[in-house]
Design a protein around this nucleic acid. Structure first.
Lengths: 375, 375
DNA sequence: ATGACCAATGAATCTATAA
DNA sequence: ATTATAGATTCATTGGTCA
């Protein structure tokens, strides 16, 4: 169940007890104020879809707390950038405090705001892991023919810092992408059809994100039971998908209207059952089997000759699970490394043996052992 | 041939006489100093490929043990974000001065630097017209399985200001893209093969850009005879493509070695006649759909039962698009292969599901998805 | 000639754990 | 914090060799 580049245990132990968190709740009011009610180091992931209209007016406040009236355009764009930057720094700072040391952050935006968000989160110490491009399969055309069709949005995925650990479910992503590494460009349709929430025949929210987008990033960077915080909850897509995937969630949303819609939507959502939630596990996460175990139980008896695929090197298995080749000896990894003069070697895939007239990698013997000794 | 959203006449009259510009020359020294020698309002387009400030750690080895030849040049080293920001502000300021009022600016970067560049150019008054994603058809994989494959870079296209006019050859782009509006995501291979400049058997420059990329942006945002300035000239891709397309060019490059290579390269380049312009057509995205896409978007929800045509085997779909059958799990292809004991299996045609009381192959669901989401 | 096979390589912030 | 050891990890393309 572990694919964290992380011993999660320590962070988990320190973690806030679930009963001290408003799980499954949509906090009312300004997201910065709302986040202030949450304890330090308490959520595993933040997903944020902040407003990016730079003339937001009521959505923004000056550093001194006074409101900004953008309808009066005596604000030139430099002022509005500065105000947007302050706003961004404020909510990112609060998100950083609430996030566990090995938690992850996702932010989505367009060219209007994403460069500002990216630079500020770097300044705050977040460490960018990837920028991910959401390629829209059905974007709105550029009606006037004045620019390229704006056919994508950008997501930034970051950890708490350069040395911070983070969750990345590599194998699940690779499986989701037909056995190829998941790339940083994702082709996903915009939210429409049945999925698009309507109110009085009109779209309920102007920027509702597709569930498939949230699905992928939650599957990639959280595990079951993790707590996901969305400071700009809107119609609650994050909550709906989190619930479906067996993740806990907390939302912040200032508009009563959206809170109502989101709560209703999430109530209808059903969690997937256990068996569907399981995902492909990386070998990193498999229980460790020492080579010595296979020697002990007779799968690879002492004295067995091992060799690499091209039979350029060979070695003999000793009773303690070490290998010997002429005067050199060591673990399956160490000897493989020394013989090849390589910087490192995974002995499990390097070494092979004869069995029933066939050449088998010792790694496949380990797989058999694991299957036969599950649980 | 006018498609400028612009009356270009005024700017053109004020323009510096060509004989006062070092057209077709590579200026030596630091690009900021070099640009200072150019008059105000004198070039039509700036294309810049500045250092990315990669901040790489130690060595990286591939799974086969071979090393990755990383960018480790002195020109990519900056002590802090603040110093990188100062450098960026300085060269952008100088570029802004040299650029005509209705000129265009392109900058390319990766997540390491592009957010800083984007925010600073907004601060300086540039107006972003699009961000464009260069999707690499053949990126380097993420060897350690720690992140998403970093499969794209980002370009920013900007005008001198919100009200500034700019050149955009809408029809040329539409033609290049099979009569569909050119989108903001461009699929182009990385620079390799014959195009990649070599020196003593090694790549001459660590970050040579593909000509197709420069070709497209010059074709989109300049017209014949325009002056293109590249402050980070490197191996002179911008000069070579500009010459081919009948545009004038000026380069800045501090390394003697690169200046030599670039000059030699451009000398060999021949201007294209009009009729040949259609040669480097865009490559359309391959219509590849992963099974996981159908799981994400709800076509095949997690928990769905799949079975082969004769219903000899069955399996359950999990959240990451893997299948599980008793103790065995894997992708649609891998599990089909294991269950049948076959050397290979095309899971798309092997697996079926019930829909509306009918049995359908999952391949037909893929076809439907492709039809509904054509690019 | 053709195909099979192998080697090389590209802007990369590229491991986890225990002692 | 540092060090040593176990062990996990790649895609598309080009170009060369050999049957």
């Amino acid at each position: 169940m572990r694919e964290r580049r992380v011993a999660k245990a320590r962070a988990r132990k320190q973690a806030v007890a679930p009963e001290d968190l408003p799980l499954g709740q949509i906090l009312a009011g300004d997201c910065i104020e709302a986040m202030r009610t949450l304890p330090d180091d308490s959520v595993d992931l933040v997903f944020a879809d902040p407003p990016y209209n730079l003339q937001l007016g009521g959505d923004l406040n000056r550093p001194d707390g006074s409101g900004v009236d953008a309808v009066n355009d005596h604000w030139d764009k430099f002022d509005s950038f500065a105000i947007y930057d302050d706003f961004t720094r404020d909510w990112l700072t609060e998100a950083r405090r609430v996030l566990k040391p090995d938690g992850g952050l996702w932010v989505i935006g367009s060219y209007h705001n994403i460069f500002r968000v990216g630079a500020i989160l770097q300044d705050l110490g977040f460490w960018i892991l990837n920028d991910v491009v959401w390629r829209k399969s059905n974007p709105m055309p550029n009606f006037k023919g004045t620019r390229f069709t704006n056919a994508h949005e950008t997501l930034i995925w970051a950890s708490q810092g350069e040395k911070a650990r983070y969750q990345f479910n590599y194998t699940a992503m690779k499986t989701l992408n037909d056995e190829l590494q998941m790339r940083s460009d994702w082709l996903i349709p915009i939210c429409g059809g049945q999925e698009r929430l309507k109110h009085d025949g009109h779209k309920a929210h102007p920027t509702q994100k597709p569930e498939a987008l949230i699905y992928r990033l939650l599957l990639a960077t959280t595990e079951k039971g993790d707590v996901v915080l969305d400071p700009f909850f809107g119609t609650g897509t994050t909550g709906a998908v989190a619930k479906r995937l067996g993740r806990e969630w907390i939302g912040c949303e200032r508009e009563d209207f959206y809170r109502g819609i989101a709560a209703e939507r999430i109530a209808k959502e059903l969690p997937l059952d256990e068996s569907a939630l399981a995902t492909m596990q990386s070998r990193k996460a498999a229980p460790r089997v020492a080579f010595g175990t296979l020697v002990e139980n007779g799968t690879v008896p002492p004295g067995t000759q091992l060799f690499d695929k091209k039979r350029r090197w060979h070695a003999t298995v000793r009773a303690d699970g070490s290998l010997v080749h002429e005067r050199q000896s060591g673990s399956i990894h160490a000897l493989g490394k020394v013989l090849q003069g390589a910087p490192s070697c995974n002995g499990w895939v390097f070494w092979h043996m004869e069995r029933d007239g066939k050449t088998v990698a010792i790694d496949s013997l380990r797989q058999e052992y694991l299957l036969a000794n599950e649980d």
